[in-house]
């Protein structure tokens, strides 16, 4: 059998279905007023998922286009920026993290340094005032370094 993306996916999904069904059998039901209970439906879903995944394994579709190394690295970089944005969001505050996030995202999407800097300043300040003054949303002010709790 050819190793196709759909086959790998199918096997992973069967694993997921087995895991979900196993977890479902472990639910501790102390009392129940109804005949079905919380286990049956998830188990039913696992069965359906397994059946569909089997079809996928035996009749996989096209592999599709996957990013090359360069693009994959950039994707990882974008994810890292987003993760960093999340990690520092409350710690460095909205303005600083948004500035950094916009700057790095704009650079990753091929803006020149001056353009990226301009976008970062304008978007951080603009969105801050739009959200706080315009929409009344409270944004994190920043616990500031080195308070990593």
């Amino acid at each position: 059998m050819r190793l196709a993306a759909d086959r790998v996916l199918g096997i992973a999904l069967i694993g997921l279905a087995a895991f979900a069904a196993f977890k479902a059998t472990q639910f501790q039901v102390t009392f129940s007023y109804e005949p079905v209970g919380p286990k049956a439906f998830p188990i039913l879903l696992s069965v359906v998922l397994t059946a569909l995944s089997l079809v996928l394994i035996f009749r996989p579709g096209e592999d599709g286009e996957w990013p090359d190394k360069f693009v994959a690295l950039k994707l990882a970089a974008v994810l890292l920026v987003l993760l960093g944005y999340a990690l520092l969001f409350t710690r460095l505050g909205y303005l600083v993290t948004t500035f950094l996030a916009v700057l790095s995202l704009a650079r990753l999407f091929e803006a020149s340094w001056p353009k990226a800097l301009l976008a970062a300043v304008l978007m951080a300040l603009g969105s801050y005032y739009l959200f706080t003054l315009g929409l009344g949303i409270s944004l994190p002010g920043g616990q500031w370094l080195p308070d990593f709790n």
Partner: peptide, 14 residues
């Protein structure tokens, strides 16, 4: 895109 993507990210996070 370098304007659009950060804008989507900001709106999603907030």
């Amino acid at each position: 895109r370098w304007v659009l993507v950060p804008a989507i990210a900001i709106l999603a996070f907030v």
